[in-house]
Amino acid sequence: MTTRHTYSSREFNQYVSEAKRAANEGPVFITDRGEPAHVLLSIQEYRRLQGDFVSLADALAQKGTEADFDFDFPSIDLDIKPADLS
């Protein structure tokens, strides 16, 4: 079981190093006016939560002859009018 730490924004600003060490034991919750506002995680925990996500850069960097990955391109809605070439 992971340890849960909570710091107010003021405490976090005063004890950044302590909060970073605490993040190695579990998530550190940072509150604003008593309400959870942010969570500080170790990079290992963050990567674990990311799961099997592969960024486009990581996927393109794969070596070998057969790279197999899925990538969903984000859709964009551009309000572009055709050029008048007359």
Rank of each mutant, 00 (worst) to 15 (best):
Q44G: 12
G51N: 04
K81N: 07
G34Q: 04
I43M: 10
R33V: 11
P82K: 03
H38T: 08
A19N: 08
G64W: 04
D32V: 13
R47E: 11
A57E: 12
L41N: 11
I76Y: 14
A57R: 07
A22C: 03
P82Y: 01
D70G: 15
I80E: 13
R10W: 03
M1I: 06
E11S: 03
P27E: 14
L49E: 08
G26W: 03
D72I: 13
R48S: 08
N24A: 10
A59Y: 05
P82V: 01
T31K: 08
T2A: 07
A61F: 03
G26R: 01
Q62C: 12
G26P: 02
V16P: 02
E18L: 12
P27I: 09
I80K: 00
Y15I: 00
Q14M: 13
L60N: 14
T6S: 05
F71G: 02
S42F: 05
L60S: 13
Q44C: 12
E11M: 05
S55P: 07
A37P: 02
S8A: 03
L60C: 09
A83Q: 09
S86I: 02
H5T: 10
E35R: 15
V39Y: 02
A83V: 15
R4L: 07
R10G: 04
A61C: 05
S17H: 13
A22P: 01
D52I: 09
V54Q: 15
S75M: 05
A59W: 03
